[in-house]
Design a protein around this nucleic acid. Sequence first.
RNA 1: GUGAGUGUAGCUCAGUUGGUUAGAGCACGAGGUUGUGGUCCUCGGGGUCGCGGGUUCGAGUCCCGUCACUCACCCCA
Length: 438
Amino acid sequence: MKFQNPKGTRDFYPEDMAVLNWIMDGWRRVSIRNGFEEYEGPIFEYLDLYKAKSGEGIVSELFHFEDRGGREMAIRPEMTPTLARMINARAQSLPRPIKWFSMPRLCRAERPQRGRLREFFQWNIDIVGSDDVLADAECIFVAVDFFREVGLTPADMVMRINSRSLLSSLLAARGFEPERHADLFVVLDKRDKLPPEVYAAELAKVTRNDAERESLNIISQARGERGLADLAAMAEGNEAAGNELARLRELFETLNLMGVGEYCEFDMGVVRGLAYYTGVVFEGFAKGTFQRAICGGGRYGQLLEVLGGPPMSGIGFGTSDVVILEVLTELKRLPAEIGAGRRTDLFLIDADESLFREVVRLAAELRRRGFCAEYSYRRQGIGKQFKQAAAAHARRAVIVGAEFKERGVLAVKDLGTGQQVEISAEAFLADPMQEVSV
RNA sequence: GUGAGUGUAGCUCAGUUGGUUAGAGCACGAGGUUGUGGUCCUCGGGGUCGCGGGUUCGAGUCCCGUCACUCACCCCA
């Protein structure tokens, strides 16, 4: 019986693992240099944790099971509930702002498609316990910092930024009751994601007349500097909207100051589907055929409270290895040297079988000193051993030959330059990777 | 859960109106040069043509079903 990997999962062969590690090393490096600390939680939680955050509907989208005690468990489909649970447990004693990141492996029971699998790694950044606009700016900066790090320029991608609280105050001023905002958000979020006629139909469902639709169209079309100016005119005499606009302007000024203004753009069309966002929301989009958001995040005001914690606001974002891989592959930004295989420092070769014991001894000694040293398991001609050295991408070949027995010297060859020198075993061991020049 | 497309070797693909033991390149393995390497030469392993049924003297090829994968919808990283 032959088995295959479960639907929507991936096997990471060494060359794939090298790419995944490259991505995740980048996530960790960028997180740490921006002042975030890594955390991790259990890979499964009580199902109720996710129900509390997202409602009953979430159950069909995740993998769940019953443990032997009859408890309903779920494999984590996202990290935020775990984060909230962990922070809530120590809410009184953690210094703020809390700047944490994680790279959890998540599972969702969805139908796999481009950029969406059933199992993936997600990079999460969160700043909890601060309402400061600096936290908003920093969160967006971290996302851009990573994308810039892997070679994306403002010509390759854009971060579209909006504020739900601004949108809410504008809607309220136009006579949309607050209790309707959540439904309106869901539809407005699809402005650019649905064909125009489908979008129009969705819009019709949540509006009462043409005047309302007209208002929504005017508001949601706002984009860029000009859009902000239009909204400012619209918000005159509306104190709440005025305050939100001022905050948004401060956010963009800060992003400019941070040197990532070129990546960022105001866009009223970005609303995000998730219900719990209350303030700034943003999504990254790449140029090319991958039309989905490559990262997304926003400010959540009551999330911790909903999960039994104190009233504390936070802002965070997430992206996954699947979308990063998709975009970097399409834009050809994956460095070619990734996945080139193991990098052997030294490949030891014996000139004849009687010297093999020296090869084993020397290799073990080199390994103890931290070098990657290899040799062939098979006793065969020097030519074959060199072939293996090349296949292992070794940087140096070291021949243990008759001259070692006679004079204690080794032949060290740089497999990149082809240069080869004789050197005493002592001098070699003192600096095994020393320059090889004739 | 709904719709569309695709299934021949590990990968990329050939396979003539149905006609003998289904092929190539790459990859993989073994040899060739017996103190010098990824290029070269020779040989080799590997496929119940996704699976099941039907039509036919005969099916990789035609028909039906089924499964898997891919893409799109819902949702979202």
